[in-house]
């Protein structure tokens, strides 16, 4: 089966995020006073061949650990994993 996947890679809690902090300081200047806790991460979209959802998730987890994320400062999360029709 083929799946459409989206993975989010984000800084672990407690790791300083200078980009997020800067954006958070900029938002009130445009009138968005109600926003807090801004964190900047990365999103990866790709297609993956696997036997089922579980097998796909396992491969993605390994990919994240070995390349997409740096486990020293980043966590990864599968946001979408949907079978492609046909």
């Amino acid at each position: 089966m083929k799946f459409d996947a989206m993975v989010e890679v984000k800084l672990r809690p407690g790791i300083a995020d200078p980009q997020g902090a800067t954006i958070e300081r900029a938002l009130p200047a445009l009138g968005f006073e109600e926003v807090s806790g801004v964190r900047v991460g990365k999103a990866f979209r790709f297609q993956i061949d696997a036997q089922d959802v579980g097998a796909a998730a396992e491969v993605i987890d390994e990919m994240c650990k070995r390349l997409l994320a740096n486990p020293v400062i980043e966590d990864s999360l599968v946001i979408e994993l949907n079978p492609i029709d046909g």
């Binding site: 790791i15 200078p18 980009q19 020293v72 400062i73």
Partner: peptide
């Protein structure tokens, strides 16, 4: 060297960007 695991830690974006 940090990415290759020969040294610990990581070099993050500078404070103040």
């Amino acid at each position: 060297l940090t990415e290759a695991g020969l040294l610990p830690g990581v070099l993050q974006k500078n404070k103040g960007l």
